[in-house]
Write a protein that binds this DNA or RNA. Sequence first.
DNA 1: ACAAATGATAACAATTCTATAACATAGAGG
DNA 2: CCTCTATGTTATAGAATTGTTATCATTTGT
Lengths: 241, 241
Amino acid sequence: MYYDSNMENKEIEIMENKEIEIIVIEDEPDILELLEYHLVKKGYSVTGFLSTDNVEQFLEEENPALMIVDRNLPGVEGSDFVAQMRNLGYDIPVMFLTARDKESDLEEGFNSGGDDYMTKPFSSKELLLRIEALLRRSGVTSNDKMKYRDLILDIKKRELSIENQSIELTNLEFRLLHTFVKNPHQALDRDYLRDEVWGDDSASFHDKTINVAMNRLKKKIDPSAEKEYFAPVWGVGYKLI
Amino acid sequence: MYYDSNMENKEIEIMENKEIEIIVIEDEPDILELLEYHLVKKGYSVTGFLSTDNVEQFLEEENPALMIVDRNLPGVEGSDFVAQMRNLGYDIPVMFLTARDKESDLEEGFNSGGDDYMTKPFSSKELLLRIEALLRRSGVTSNDKMKYRDLILDIKKRELSIENQSIELTNLEFRLLHTFVKNPHQALDRDYLRDEVWGDDSASFHDKTINVAMNRLKKKIDPSAEKEYFAPVWGVGYKLI
DNA sequence: ACAAATGATAACAATTCTATAACATAGAGG
DNA sequence: CCTCTATGTTATAGAATTGTTATCATTTGT
């Protein structure tokens, strides 16, 4: 077997995809199955529907990240359904699938509030790429996340999570940790930390302020002190191991 | 102090009608001209480039809403250029155009941070539809309805309803809530809110103004404080949970 | 081993920030 | 001109965060 230091990163990647939920509405079971296969393989969590029944309820209860919709469904037109959902205020990204590719169909699809459009037969590779792009643009895959070991910092949300557990940090603690994650493995000296985290305006600044802040941070992210995120660098400062 | 509440409305109106700026980077003058023709006809304001030179400067100065990029440009690969821009922090939506349609090219395009991809020869109708969809999704063209949890905002009517109950909001409160619904889960800091909701013209601005405005908003949409729409982010601002 | 310097930790104090109510003011509309 | 409404301003209480100090533990140099 083949392990390397990327292993952890891969795990994190998978964990993140696990949370992304995708709805597929497709009346042909074969195609539905094919779609599910590719999406699940990619790490998404998929819920399939053979018609638009119950989809709204699902939208209300869960909070899926994306909807793949066939155009000609039993009973309802896919684009009509999407227009209906949009009208109710659902802003979920929509990828249309269709056998038809007349321009008028295309127009209907986009005007109903669809985000992208693919015609069957489709390349699964392209579908996955387009889905990824859509998720990126709609903010589901926040590109503003920083990872280090099992720490995941979401800068925009100002949240730290470790192993899918959200951990509350104060503003100072967050800035401090952020500084370290930006400079992993490096010994950051006290002057640097002071500038970076406390800012220039810190006129009187006690020796021990940083120690205490580090202590509080360590205790929060690793109460049992078994993970050794930080190491003191004697006479200098600290480093994120 | 001079304050005119009509003024704000006018500004908003203007902002909404403000011309949407699109950049086109395409080295073949004929195609560039054709693209410009269609886009201008549609009402966009277009700036064309025959190479990637000066584009970054333009991005810096203006704030275009979308970039259409040819894949094979003189000197630089289109996708490399986009990756470069993304790396510099530009999040502008990108539509790739290309003569090639190998899967590997497609992959490069999307992985560089592109949002959509069309192969030449393209239908101008489809291009315009896709651009519209992209602008909608990236928040340039605001949707007429937005939903978040049980909040439904009708942007045009400036109405909020919760569980089919209409709730009266003042202008300020609506703008404030709208800002949060556009950025759910994100910690919005006071500077951002000030810019976004109060505008640049707010010269003197008290610390507590935002607190009070938030307090009033919270009380209106959730008088019994049981739904916890908002959470304060200490030392930063607020977030819509 | 011992002293000096530095870090860790806990307890306490000071400060900063938020919530909230009350008051002030300027426009809108009658 | 008057009243009402929206919004800004101020005051205060209370909560959360951050700083300070004291004491103990660890490292380093001799």
